[in-house]
């Protein structure tokens, strides 16, 4: 005798979905609780070689400006001093004895700094900029200065991407 049940007409087999739904809700709860939409961040890509010895390029004769190409030539480096007040804001930016910007670094000052730096890069084949910044300077302010530097075009037509930092205290010590 066959033990196989014969399906009665009109009787349909139904899956118990409640268990699957429970599991799906648990997964959903996990993903909702761990969901943290991260903001779209930008990055400023810079090549930061180690600092070089500080020399004043304006004091050097022009024939030294190009160097022999072996290693890093300090005469191809533009040393820019960035001074700050106790609140971490920029008070002065200078190259050698020439002041490029004085006071808070607002949009107008940024434009003026960019033009002044452009003049330096048009006259001398600098390859990189060394920012000698006050230790108190806020990072946000420094980024404004870096942004201006990364917009500068070198004499070979490439954009400036070699930037290094030194803290003023380290130079004085």
């Amino acid at each position: 005798m066959s033990r196989r049940h014969k399906k009665k007409k009109g009787e349909d087999i139904q899956l118990n979905l409640a268990a699957m739904l429970d599991m799906a809700f648990q997964l959903l709860t996990f993903f909702i609780l761990t969901f943290r939409p991260s903001p779209v961040e930008g990055q400023l890509a810079v090549n930061l070689p180690p600092p070089v010895a500080i020399t004043n390029p304006q004091d050097k004769p022009k024939e030294d400006a190009t160097g022999d190409g072996a290693g890093i030539n300090p005469f191809e480096t533009l040393n820019m001093y960035v001074n700050a007040n106790d609140a971490g804001e920029v008070t002065e930016i200078r190259v050698g004895t020439r002041t490029l910007s004085r006071g808070r670094l607002d949009e107008r000052q940024v434009g003026s700094l960019s033009r002044s730096l452009g003049e330096f890069f048009a006259l001398t084949p600098y390859e990189r900029v060394q920012i000698i910044a006050d230790g108190k300077l806020h990072y946000g302010e420094l980024m404004k200065v870096i942004e201006v530097c990364t917009r500068q075009k070198l004499t070979n037509g490439e954009m400036l991407h070699k930037i290094s930092f030194i803290q003023q205290d380290e130079v004085q010590n």
């Binding site: 961040e41 810079v46 090549n47 070689p49 180690p50 420094l142």
Partner: peptide, 27 residues
């Protein structure tokens, strides 16, 4: 943005001393 440069410089220098040259400064 309000972190003092001295601290940022310390971290960057440490990375440079260990051979890192490519940096991405987030903003």
């Amino acid at each position: 943005g309000r972190a003092p440069f001295a601290q940022v410089n310390k971290v960057i220098k440490l990375c440079q001393n260990n051979g890192f040259r490519q940096f991405q400064l987030s903003a």
